[in-house]
Design a protein around this nucleic acid. Structure first.
Length: 726
DNA sequence: TATATCGTTGTTTTT
DNA sequence: CAACGATATA
């Protein structure tokens, strides 16, 4: 009796193929994790492969954790010997051992986007960059792209064809140097440097022999560096199993290359390909809707997802007058469901951008409904939390000037930009690190009072550093808070200080929890702790049992499933994003994102859009329903507002309906002013304001036109000159 | 050097 | 709307 009896025939075929290359094309909800975990169990239990020889790579900690738990439930304690890890943690692990080979110390810090921006901003100041178009954020994003594509600064400098590119190349070069000086790596470096390490024949051989069997989850989301890492490790034994779904490739913007999965068979000519097409998650209607959309993509290799489940409910489409009404509708649905035996935890709201969470948060707060937002402003990114983490990072790695500069005047110590500059000059002259220069502040040209202040800080940090190797992370946290009197400082910070104090306390709790966990058995050192905080993902702490409504971006929902899903904000320019309007590739990625969203739902899917919504604090009018709404085959949907999506000439101010929270779409009754060439309700284009709709014609005088960013009043004479009728 | 105030600017999506 | 930076003022 084989353990594989628990699988369907296709899953089984995939699980049994242990040697040689294997591509598992796993449609949404097709039991991918089940297949992979059974495959591992089969290898260990029935093929007598040592669990130490198996490497399984995922993208998020949550996925890794789940895989571990499920393997453990199949094979017990042996599961701990299988290396199941995210790409980034796997890399970090290797890098800690071999850091010196690349010019780093083992205790390197990991820089997040925020740190990158800070550092790049500093370098841009030093290089005196005049182009206002180039912001630290935009330069960071360019640099990251280069890094993901494997371009070194010198490659860019060589090929730089315009001044902007030259400037960016210069920043990139300094940035790369500075990272090494700071003994820090950004996210891209974790992969790039891992890949570099594998160019060392000794390291490579060791890894290849250690991991004879390699598995990669979500292969459609691998970028070129990840592809290289995997290819190198698997080159020797060729036992590579990749699992993925090209229709769920949604990370192109961060370098994911969909070709990796599409070309797998070209790369490995003898690869076995298994398609998992039976879906165990969703109803027929949900699957039908998903299929009707994704088939419009040219990158889709076509699959036939099917289910034994019932047709289920139709997908409910709700047209709201504005964002508030949309939130109210969902609120009502949740309350209704709760009264009919559903739990809050059955509901999940999915949106395209983090900013959209706000309206829902407010609605839930008003009605005291438990909810939790995943992603967005991360806990570890909050000012007060990041402050403490920065102290810890300086203690872990005093070369880290990004962290050191962050806390050097927090709490306020009167150490300002001028002081920092002078210490920095001294450090540069003597070729010592900034932190060391603080210790020798006596030799600088600073005033005597500030010298004392700087030296005190140096001494304080140094004392903690000296003791830190014997201390656990929570003890270091305690020392920092005590010696800086940070809580006291927070009370004077702003009017949200109470919440901030809570967050700092919560940080203490999170350290404690990690310490107490099985993995660390009471002791976690500061480096391990910092690493954990740097590599957390938004949904890592998602708890299935806690009774709250979940809110997250569609990106964060990948790999998850929920009984009832509300897909909200289905409007053009929001979803698909306005930025994806110009290229087919981008549009297809947006469509895949839509496919991911729909296939998260198990039993019931609601889709909604609003005609007006607050964007950037102003009201955006006349919002078009998303093209994706129109792409769903009609037979799967039910328009709860009793009207199909006809987006032209909508009466926007149907107050009565607004009051009820429901907006029935009706045709506007247009007034006609026979004298004017312009009529109320007509769509017009203005070269500056874009398209608008005529709201009012003041006879013989002027027009009131509602544009996207508000009402404008145009005298008739000007209107005749500047308006184009559609 | 710290603080107050004003103006500008931006938002995809994330390990 | 907020976060951030530039500028003015103490």
């Amino acid at each position: 009796m084989s353990i594989l009896n628990g699988l369907n025939s296709e899953q089984r075929k995939a699980a049994e193929k242990i040697d040689g290359p294997l591509l598992i094309l796993a449609g949404a909800g097709s039991g991918k994790t089940r297949t992979v975990t059974y495959r591992i169990a089969y290898m260990v239990l029935e093929k007598e492969i040592s669990p130490y020889k198996i490497l399984a790579v995922t993208f998020t900690n949550k996925a890794a954790k789940e895989m571990k738990i499920r393997v453990e439930s199949l094979i017990g304690i042996e599961a701990k010997k299988v290396m199941i890890s995210t790409f980034h943690s796997f890399g970090v692990r290797l890098l800690r051992v071999h850091a010196t080979k690349l010019g780093y110390d083992a205790n390197f810090n990991i820089y997040d986007a925020d740190d990158q921006k800070k550092l790049v901003g500093r370098l841009m100041k030093e290089l005196v960059i005049t182009n206002k178009q180039l912001t630290p954020a935009s330069v960071v994003s360019k640099i990251s792209k280069y890094k993901e594509d494997g371009d070194e600064p010198s490659d860019i400098t060589k090929e730089a064809y315009n001044t902007d590119t030259k400037v960016i190349a210069a920043v990139y070069e300094k940035y790369a140097e500075e990272l090494i000086k700071n003994n820090a790596m950004d996210f891209a470096d974790l992969l790039i440097n891992t890949n570099k390490l594998l160019d060392d024949p000794e390291v490579l051989e060791k890894i290849q022999d250690r991991y004879e069997y390699v598995m990669v989850d979500e292969y459609q989301d691998t970028n070129n560096i990840q592809y290289q890492i995997i290819t190198k490790i698997a080159r020797k034994h060729k036992n590579i199993c990749v699992v993925g779904d090209e229709d769920q490739s949604i990370y192109g913007f961060r370098g994911a290359n969909i070709r990796n999965i599409l070309d797998f068979e070209k790369e490995y000519k003898d690869a076995m390909v298994v398609k998992l097409e039976q879906n165990y998650r969703s109803t027929q209607n949900i699957l039908g809707a998903a299929n009707s959309i994704i088939k419009l993509n040219t990158t889709s290799r076509g699959k036939n997802l099917w289910t034994e489940k019932d047709k289920g409910n139709l997908i409910e489409i709700f047209s709201a007058s504005d964002g508030r009404a949309e939130a109210d509708y969902i609120l009502q649905e949740v309350i209704k469901g709760k009264n009919n035996g559903r739990s809050y935890k059955d509901y999940t709201i999915l949106y395209r951008t983090n900013a959209q969470s706000r309206v829902f948060e407010e609605a839930f707060l008003r009605h005291r409904i438990n909810y939790k937002i995943f992603g967005g402003m991360q806990f570890y990114q909050r000012v007060e939390v990041k402050d403490i983490l920065s102290y810890m990072r300086v203690i872990n790695n005093p070369k880290d000037t990004v962290s050191l500069f962050r806390i050097i005047n927090v709490p306020k110590r009167k150490i300002g930009a001028k002081t920092i500059e002078k210490i920095k000059d001294f450090a540069d002259e003597n070729e010592i690190m900034f932190f060391e220069a603080m210790g020798r502040v006596e030799e600088t040209k600073l005033g005597s009072a500030i010298k004392v202040t700087v030296f005190r800080l140096y001494e304080m940090l140094n004392k903690i550093i000296e003791e830190s190797q014997f201390l656990t992370a929570s003890e270091i946290y305690d020392m920092i808070l005590e010696k800086t009197n940070y809580m006291n400082y927070l009370t004077t910070y702003d009017d949200k200080f109470e919440a901030r104090i809570e967050n700092v306390k919560e940080l203490r709790t999170s350290i404690q929890e990690m310490e107490d966990s099985e993995e660390y058995e009471g002791f976690i050192n500061i480096g391990e702790f910092l690493e954990r905080t740097a590599l957390v993902a938004a949904t890592d702490d998602l708890e299935e049992d806690t009774d709250y409504v979940k809110l997250m971006t569609i990106h964060n929902s990948k790999g998850l499933e929920f009984p009832v899903v509300f897909l909200v904000g289905m409007e053009d320019e929001l979803f698909p994003s306005a930025k994806a309007d110009f290229s087919d590739d981008d549009l297809e990625e947006e469509r895949r994102l839509c496919y991911v969203a729909i296939t998260r739902a198990e039993e019931k899917l609601h889709i909604s859009h609003a005609f007006e919504r607050m964007v950037y604090g102003r009201i955006s009018y006349m919002r078009e329903p998303s093209r994706f709404l129109k792409e769903i085959d009609e037979k799967y949907v039910d328009y709860v507002n009793k009207s199909k999506i006809v987006s032209k000439n909508i009466n926007l101010e149907n107050k009565k309906n607004k009051l009820e929270g429901l907006n029935i779409i009706t045709k506007a009754d247009f007034k006609v002013d026979s004298k004017s060439p312009f009529k109320i309700g007509e769509k017009v284009t203005h070269k500056k304001f874009g398209t608008g709709i005529i709201k009012d014609v003041e006879v013989g005088k002027r027009l009131v036109i509602r544009f996207r960013d508000g009402d404008k009043k145009l005298p008739l004479i000007l209107a005749e000159k500047f308006l184009i009728k559609e």
